[in-house]
């Protein structure tokens, strides 16, 4: 499915997910849609990695037209109110954007809407705290 280019950078919400060989309920997560996802690596999940992925995540239902980006593509991510920027590569399909349409996360008067990115614990904890399940970020390609 061809998608028009999205303007970059953009703001969005992000959460974290575990993948690869792991403990607890994550144990069955596996290597993700790209097969190489690891919780300890700087990886991310993107809602439009393939037609099948898009059919599940449906960011369009929240009004977000996202560019098709496949396994290995690099995004640069920064907390909306933070100073550290990290780089992550796509290793999985997600998050399921359409479940959370309109949700907002804010910091210091700035807000971001809709879940467009999930980060591995390694990536998320580099710019935020794992005990907070969601944070607003800036994303650029």
């Amino acid at each position: 499915m061809a998608q028009p280019e999205q303007l970059a950078p953009t703001t969005a919400e992000t959460s974290w997910f575990c993948c690869g060989a792991a403990w607890g309920p994550c144990g069955s997560a596996g290597g993700g849609a790209c097969g190489n996802c690891r919780s300890g690596s700087r990886h991310c999940a993107w809602p439009n990695t393939s037609d099948n992925c898009f059919a599940i995540t449906r960011p369009d239902k929240c009004g977000d037209t996202l560019l098709r980006r496949t396994c290995g593509h690099t995004f640069y991510v920064q907390h909306l109110c933070g100073s550290t920027e990290i780089a992550v590569t796509i290793a999985d399909c997600g998050p399921q954007t359409d479940l959370w349409c309109g949700e907002q996360s804010c910091c210091s008067g700035k807000c971001a809407s809709n879940r467009l990115l999930d980060l591995t614990p390694s990536a998320y904890s580099a710019i935020g705290n794992l005990s907070s399940g969601i944070m607003p970020v800036n994303i650029r390609s």
Binding site: C81, S108, L130, M135
Partner: peptide, 17 residues
């Protein structure tokens, strides 16, 4: 996390709560 106070020092923070 929504406050200016937090944002003013967030670059210096090293840990979670």
């Amino acid at each position: 996390q929504r406050s200016d106070a937090y944002r003013s020092v967030v670059g210096a923070l090293r840990s979670d709560l």
